[in-house]
Simulated assay, not measured.
Amino acid sequence: MKEFTIRPFLSVLIIYLLLAGCTSNTSEKTEQKSTGSKKDYYSEKLEIKHAKGFRIKYFNNYKIVEILNPFEKNTDTTRYLLLQRRTVRPTGFTGHQVIEIPIRSLATTSSMHVGLLDFLESIEVLKGIGGTQYIYSPKVIQLIKEGKIPEVGKDQGLNEEKLVSMHPDLIMAMGSPGAGMSKYQTLADAGIPVLINSEWVETTPLARAEWVKLLAALLNKEELANRKFSVIENEYQRLATLVKQAKTKPSVISGLNTKDTWFLPSGDSYMARFFKDAGADYHWAETKATGSLALGFETVYPIALKADYWLNVGFNSSDSKKDILAQDSRYDDFNAYKSGHMYSYNNRVNDKGANDFFESGNVNPQRVLADLIKIFHPELLPEHQLFYYKNLK
Results as ranks from 00 to 15, higher is better:
T186I: 12
G157P: 01
I149S: 11
W211T: 07
P205T: 09
W211P: 07
K145L: 01
N159K: 08
K221W: 03
L215N: 06
I135H: 07
I135M: 08
L206E: 13
K213A: 07
P168D: 08
E202Y: 08
Q185G: 00
N220E: 15
V164S: 04
L224Y: 09
K139D: 14
I232S: 09
T186L: 12
P205W: 12
E222A: 06
I141T: 02
A217K: 12
S198R: 14
G191W: 13
G153T: 06
P150N: 05
P205F: 08
I171L: 15
G147W: 12
R208L: 09
L218G: 03
K139L: 13
M174D: 08
M166P: 15
G157Q: 14
V231L: 10
N220V: 00
R208V: 04
T203C: 05
T203H: 06
A209H: 06
R227Q: 15
V140S: 05
G157E: 15
R227F: 01
L195E: 09
Q185L: 10
E202D: 09
S137K: 03
K145I: 02
K221L: 04
A209W: 00
G180Q: 03
I196A: 02
K148T: 04
A209G: 10
K139H: 11
G147M: 08
R227M: 05
K183H: 03
A173C: 03
D155S: 13
N226W: 12
P193V: 09
T186F: 05
Q142V: 00
L224N: 03
L195D: 11
